[in-house]
Computed example of a mutant assay.
Amino acid sequence: MATLKEIANAVGVSVGTVSRVLNNDSTISVGDDTKIKIFEVAEEMQYKTLKQRKTNSKTKTNKLRVGIVEMYNYSEQLQDPYYLLLRSAVERECFDNEIEVVNLYKTEDEYKYIGNEILSGIIAIGKFTQNEVSMLNEVCDDIVFLDSSPNEQKYDSVKVNFKLGTYKALDHLIKLGHMEIGYIGSTKTPDDYREKTQDNRLKFFTEYMRSKSLYKKEYILDTKEMTAINGYEITKKFIKDNKNMPTAFFVGTDTIATGVLKALYENNINVPEDVSIVGFNDLIASQHTIPPLTTVRVHIEHLASASVDLIMERINRNRKYSKKVIIPSELVIRDSAKEVKLTK
């Protein structure tokens, strides 16, 4: 079994950093990429924390075995680490509950996993087509969908309350005096069956702004994809093509917001003095942008905990009916949004 020092050498960080990351120390200031790399190397080297070693040393009976499957592959996740962090949280929750994790992978016409043991259940992270849902059902009947809800009558699901988060963000900007508010993000994102439809954040942004008679179509910037580079390019183009700038932008994800901040900085537009920015997700890096990002926090740990609780309840209590859990989001106020400047 690997040591902390071996992991630290492989990643290029200190032993202390590795220890704190693997033990889920929320106070450590480490970038998402570094965190992800530490977890990956630790898994490759089959490192176990003290808690995991103690758990493994116990005699276990009727141990649950849960398959985990994801919408995105690793390279796609690096463009936006949200799902990668969500998977890590699910795996930690499984370890804490002495649940064995099995990775599912997709072939041309079915989902497979290594080993012959029967799965107790599946946690499916992301959005899946109707065909993919059927293929997963061939592997196991007990499935929890995390971040989608393809069939509420048949499957358990856990989702984020996008409306609550969006409304809180816009309430905050309105209270700061902003009347000219734009949206930056992908206008169409995968729905519960992975079909591209209007993004929920844009849907509720539009609903809110129209209710206040403040909606302006020209302030909707479509990034097409949820990446930092797309946020950078669309913002740069908007600045070049438009003389008028809204006093604030609500941005679909923190990942996009990093690109937006870069484009504004390069064009000598100060945040929050000239324009306020509010993001969505509250990734770890959002605390360390310049300025630190005001954003809507999606409680990844609560999403993971709820999905594992549902699969355990479904199996251990033989629950036959399905449940849908909606996790509230909350506004985290930092320095990227301030009271609007009144022009004379």
Rank of each mutant, 00 (worst) to 15 (best):
G185F: 11
F204Y: 14
D192V: 05
D191H: 10
K188I: 15
I184V: 14
Q198C: 09
L173G: 01
E195Y: 11
Y183L: 03
Q198Y: 04
Y193P: 01
L173I: 04
L170P: 02
Y183R: 04
I181Y: 00
K175C: 03
Q198F: 06
K175M: 06
S186M: 12
P190Y: 07
K188M: 15
E195C: 11
Y183W: 09
D191V: 09
D192G: 05
R201E: 09
D199P: 07
F205Q: 00
K203L: 15
E207I: 03
E180L: 09
K203T: 13
T189P: 09
L176D: 00
Y183D: 03
K188L: 15
K175A: 08
K203S: 12
I184D: 09
E180N: 14
I174M: 01
E195D: 15
K188A: 15
Y193M: 04
E207N: 07
R194S: 13
F205W: 01
T189W: 09
I184W: 10
S186H: 12
K175F: 06
D191Y: 09
F205T: 01
L202S: 10
L176A: 01
F204R: 02
M179I: 08
I184E: 07
L170H: 05
I174G: 00
G185C: 10
G182M: 08
T187N: 11
N200C: 08
I174H: 00
G185K: 10
T197S: 14
S186F: 07
Y193K: 04
L173M: 13
D171I: 04
H172P: 08
D171K: 05
I184L: 12
T197E: 15
K175W: 05
M179L: 09
N200D: 10
G185W: 07
P190C: 05
E207S: 07
F205P: 01
D171M: 05
I181P: 02
E207G: 04
P190M: 08
I174L: 07
N200R: 13
L170F: 02
M179W: 02
Y183T: 04
D191R: 03
G185Y: 11
G177W: 11
I174C: 00
Y193R: 03
K196M: 15
Y183K: 05
K203W: 06
I184R: 11
E180H: 14
L173W: 04
L176I: 02
I181C: 00
D171A: 02
G185N: 10
H178R: 01
L176M: 06
D192M: 06
I184F: 11
T187I: 13
P190V: 10
N200W: 08
R194A: 14
G182W: 06
Q198H: 04
T187S: 13
K196G: 08
M179C: 05
I174F: 00
L202I: 12
R201Y: 12
K196W: 15
H172A: 10
K196C: 12
F205E: 01
M179G: 02
T189G: 13
Q198E: 14
Y193I: 12
K188F: 15
T187A: 12
T189I: 13
T206Q: 11
E195L: 14
G177T: 07
P190A: 06
K196H: 14
D199V: 07
H178C: 00
D191K: 06
I184P: 12
H172N: 14
Y193C: 06
L173K: 03
Y193L: 09
T197M: 12
E180F: 07
T189C: 14
L170T: 03
D199F: 08
D192I: 06
G177L: 11
L176V: 05
